[in-house]
Design a protein around this nucleic acid. Structure first.
Lengths: 132, 132
DNA sequence: TGCGTCACGTAATGTTATTACATGAATTGT
DNA sequence: ACAATTCATGTAATAACATTACGTGACGCA
């Protein structure tokens, strides 16, 4: 379990994401941090860039938005690809890992000589609660 | 094998994507079609929307861009999720299917009562040719 | 002290996507 | 034949997301 020293801006952005129910766009984060002195998108994007690097935050490509990592305590993020199920009705995001999928993707990339750097798996749909 | 009647604009957009080596952004498509009378982004987005619906085109979420479906002749697109390997050096995109991954995702969603509508799988990295 | 690095601030701009409103062509039911 | 509906289209404006360029001050270190 490595702990990183976050800067002031990184801490602020991570706090906002952690407190949030669902994913937030960079501009939404910006708005929430205006009272703390944030004035430009770049301040958010710079913090996000680092937080992504540290694995404390994930980017949801299909939503152009960001979530705090749900599995920090398990250090899950480091041993495989993270997948997301995103409810299009309530916005809730479930984060999970699947080693079979990891293996399968690895075997495809190995077979092709493809060297993966980042893998995105996102399922859009309706969560159990919304799918009544 | 169902064949769809495409409108003029849809045909133009699909042709541009089919002729292209790699994925194109909506605005790049727009530029390539100015000579054919395209003047606004909406003309492209509307055509893309339909082409996506017909399964003739895929959207790459991590790139905000679009590719013609590579497996039309196999009607692959209809029986499972499509995955993409995207080379960050040369831009080449490989499209593939994997039933084990499909099964694994289906079993996760079934277990959670999540009803999937669209699933995105994108691997960013370096293709064999670029990874020397 | 001089140098490199890094977090930060600000402004401007670039890129991607949508909303709102209007028109004409094709289809359908009567 | 006619009204009603649907659908593809065109145009303008704007919203939403992201980056480039430039400058400053703090810090570690040879």
């Amino acid at each position: 379990m490595s702990t990183v020293n976050l800067t002031k801006n990184q801490t602020l952005v991570l706090d906002v994401l952690t407190r949030s129910e669902g994913p937030l766009s960079a501009y939404t984060i910006l708005d929430k941090l205006r009272d703390h002195g944030f004035r430009a998108p770049l301040q958010v994007y710079r913090a996000l860039e680092k937080l992504l690097e540290f694995g404390l935050v994930h980017r949801l490509e299909s939503l152009n938005s960001f979530v705090a990592c749900a599995h920090r305590e398990h250090a899950c993020c480091s041993h495989g690809t993270v997948a997301f199920a995103i409810c299009e009705s309530c916005g809730q995001v479930s984060e999970f890992h699947d080693h079979v999928i990891d293996d399968q993707l690895n075997s495809w990339t190995r077979g092709k000589g493809f060297k993966p750097s980042k893998t995105t798996i996102e399922i859009r749909g309706l969560c159990a609660a919304c799918n009544i």
